[in-house]
Nucleic acid binder design. Sequence first.
DNA 1: CGAATGACCTTAG
DNA 2: CCTAAGGCCATTC
Length: 113
Amino acid sequence: MDNPHYLAIFKVVNLIPKGKVASYGQVADLAGLPGRARLTGKALGHVPESMQVNWHRVLRSNGQIAFAKGSDLAQLQIGKLQEENVAVINHRVKLKAFQWQPDMLTLLQDLEF
DNA sequence: CGAATGACCTTAG
DNA sequence: CCTAAGGCCATTC
């Protein structure tokens, strides 16, 4: 893990409140990496074990789970989401009800560049 | 060095 | 709902 952007990404992901979710693209934007959603996915696949990141709160822009249906990771993610009372129907969550709406002011404080 | 490959996104038809 | 085309880019082969 030597990409300097990974840290910013992890930081943003950990700001997503319990019970809410965000998309890869949204995370990338907030981390100062507009248009680089793929990098978010990349980063989440390389989380150092010394770190704890709430990767399960990150979904595709349409609310779908990013992993193949039935895969171990997909099951794990769905389980973790349901523990937080986020309903996952048909491999997808209803964004209208759960998507995170960050408050930019407090967000900037937490990020402190 | 070129080609393929993703935990992606958006627009258009 | 589905496909296709463009964008994006670190990694791996």
